[in-house]
Design a protein around this nucleic acid. Sequence first.
DNA 1: ATCTAACCGTGGTATGACCACTGGTATCAT
DNA 2: ATGATACCAGTGGTCATACCACGGTTAGAT
Lengths: 268, 268
Amino acid sequence: MDGFVSIVREKAEGKGGYEGVVAYLREQLLSGELKTGDCLLPERELSARLGVSRQVLREALRALAMIGAVEIRHGVGTIVSRPDVSTLGEFFTFALAQQSEVIDDIMEARIAIEHHAIRLACRRAGQADFDRLAERLYDIVETIHDPEAGGHADFRFHEALVQAGGSPTLISLYSSIASLMMRSHLDRREQIIQVEGITEFLIDHHRKIFEAIVARDAGVADELLTRHFEIGADFRRRAGFRSAAANLRSSASETNIIQGEQNADRDR
Amino acid sequence: MDGFVSIVREKAEGKGGYEGVVAYLREQLLSGELKTGDCLLPERELSARLGVSRQVLREALRALAMIGAVEIRHGVGTIVSRPDVSTLGEFFTFALAQQSEVIDDIMEARIAIEHHAIRLACRRAGQADFDRLAERLYDIVETIHDPEAGGHADFRFHEALVQAGGSPTLISLYSSIASLMMRSHLDRREQIIQVEGITEFLIDHHRKIFEAIVARDAGVADELLTRHFEIGADFRRRAGFRSAAANLRSSASETNIIQGEQNADRDR
DNA sequence: ATCTAACCGTGGTATGACCACTGGTATCAT
DNA sequence: ATGATACCAGTGGTCATACCACGGTTAGAT
């Protein structure tokens, strides 16, 4: 490092460093020069071209990988990929981690999505969708006595329902909040399942929904779904207070998470 | 901290390196040990504690910063922050880069959200929500002849509608897709606005929606919204061909989108 | 008391080296 | 010829160290 400095200043056109790299890659992606499946240059070479260190480039790539814009594969390379839902799931996990009250609110999103999806499904669903729904319905019946598997089957049915709607966006959003729904509902299933006659109700109600979709009767399907959620909410509410219906062998109430006291309320 | 080694323990159990760091921080966030506003340890120290190099730690922090989980401030430190919607905007920017067909589909998400939100609004909305809606409605009237400002006012009204629903999740999702909706609708506004009598229709229809919410009549509100979207879609479709025609009330025609042909089976 | 400047801690970047994984190729045994 | 094995080159993954740039604090000068 003698007196002379200067030399390379090529990246001077705006921002340099991390920001610049992200901006550059975003540009490449939006302009279409980089499309899904393309393989980026090796880190060493790319970093050299952009005039940044490899570390900075890696930071940018990691960041992009976090939102799913690229996929970094050890020993292979970095390939452009389309952000998919799993990414959004990650986001929501972090986003909602700190606002516990939202966990309950996530149900509103689920209802909104499923309601519209079921209407779409009544118009668009094809045989493949019917088959999948039937399959998931069968799973519900099979696993009706197993809280964990049953809850999973239940979710899978509703997932198939949304899928039948044929809207990629709805499917994406639904998948995004799926992990969070699991978080608060899977456990309650254990309590709900104990209610007398609930098993028959669950099976019967899901079947009716399925049949309404097959019949392409949006009105009935929508109405059924409304009741489905209302009843579900009712059960969950009751399960929250005390041991739901009659005989819960163990008052495992255990004060669900909650603990949310530090409700900051930071609006902007 | 002299000759003793120890260390090794933490990362030995599961993943080490980048993945481990992200997992660790996620755990800290989800468990509540780190809450919004908290300041993380300096990079050098934190990296030492986690048994990774500073570079790896930085990659993890950059990734988390990309989704808004933390905010890195030069010369200050890294502070925990709650991901807000602007982050999702970034995500969708990348997401839509490669799949342009989703832009149309985004409308389905909007419909789903607004439909449920308006029902919630009819139950939950308070005076503040009414005031905001009224204000936005006024803006629509004011800017009715300006395509750009008018489109913006239109959006703001619907935004207030969702807000009135009082569901943070719905609001977040709606904001997330807002930028994408703008992208495809603002321009069409220029064509739509030319249709004879459209201005009166827009004003009148929005006002009716507003009144339905104030009246807390979910059924009417929902029905109005349905027609609102159908007519809007109809206009946009026609505007696609040519500059739409005159008679708007000429049977909003059922001809709903449908197009459901490629309802393929994308399972995973 | 106020302003200025130096200082220190923080993140930001650069370099070079080495490790670990993947995929293809060459080699070998059958 | 065929199959399995060993090898090798290229790629991402990690590490360590040094230095730069920014922000807030503090000691000094005015």
